[in-house]
Simulated assay, not measured.
Amino acid sequence: MAFRERDNFYVVTGCSGAGKSAIIEALKARGFLCVDEAGRTIVQEQVRVGGDGTPWQNRAKFRELLLSRYLYLFDQIKERKQPVFFDRGIPEILTFSRSLSIPAPEHHRAAARLYRYARTVFVTPPWPEIFKTDEERRHSYDDALAEYPLTLGAYRESAYQPIEVPRGPVSERVDFILQHVRAP
């Protein structure tokens, strides 16, 4: 199997509700190509069609839909020089298995090995003051906190180097990320 390594693809991950999407929107406003969170899109689609592939209905099904969408989005981006930012990435799929307390299927582990982002992964730490639920994020802050170390573990085990993005205004968080991005 051939590796798909994209040194210009950067993941912004971390605790749910810690400002990842705001960072992605700010990066878009600065002219960067960004990929929105696949999980939110899947939830919106499943709710729209009355499907059960949501994290609160059928986590195993959601996990497979999520993997499929991550692979699709990775392959759809043709940019090979300028930085591209992803709101979460393929190793997140391993987090779901861990949160279900079941082993990750081999095809999930293979996807994390074969589809490679830049080694540096930007992590937003828990931030209770900005956490909120909505139609796509129905879990509690405690649920988000419990998932956070699983996400960090998935990236570390997938040979990525997580760098914590300091709390602060979105513009400062974006500046921090851009200081650590490989120039084309």
Rank of each mutant, 00 (worst) to 15 (best):
F85E: 00
V49E: 11
P128M: 04
Y148H: 15
V49Y: 12
Q76P: 00
P126D: 10
F74G: 02
H139I: 13
V121I: 14
D7F: 01
P128N: 07
F85C: 00
C34Q: 04
R182P: 00
L150R: 14
T54E: 08
V84K: 09
R59D: 04
P149H: 10
A110Y: 07
L71W: 10
L145N: 08
Y155S: 08
G19W: 11
S101C: 12
A29K: 15
G89S: 13
Y70K: 02
Q46T: 03
N8D: 05
L65V: 03
E106M: 07
F96D: 09
V11R: 01
S99F: 14
Y148I: 03
H180W: 13
E136K: 13
D52Y: 01
Q76I: 00
I42N: 09
G39D: 06
G17W: 11
K28V: 04
S97Q: 06
D52W: 00
F85T: 00
D142N: 12
D87F: 12
G14D: 06
R116A: 00
P125M: 11
P184M: 11
A112H: 03
H107G: 00
I42D: 05
G19Y: 10
L94Q: 07
I93R: 01
Y160W: 10
I163E: 12
F62N: 09
R113K: 13
F122K: 01
F9V: 02
V84T: 09
A112P: 02
G50E: 10
L145T: 05
P55H: 11
G17R: 06
P83V: 02
D52V: 03
C34N: 05
W56A: 04
N58M: 02
Q161G: 00
V49S: 05
P162E: 07
E37I: 10
S140A: 08
E129M: 06
R48F: 06
T151N: 05
G17Y: 08
V84S: 05
P166V: 06
F62R: 11
P149G: 10
I23W: 12
A18P: 03
H139A: 07
A112N: 03
R4G: 00
Q179L: 04
E79V: 08
E45G: 01
A110E: 14
P184A: 12
Y115P: 00
F176G: 05
I177T: 02
L66T: 12
Q76E: 14
F32Q: 11
R30N: 09
S158N: 07
A183W: 06
T95G: 04
D134N: 14
E172C: 02
P55C: 06
T124N: 05
K78Q: 14
R116N: 00
S171F: 07
E164N: 11
A111C: 03
S99W: 12
D52H: 05
V181N: 06
R109N: 01
E106F: 08
D75N: 15
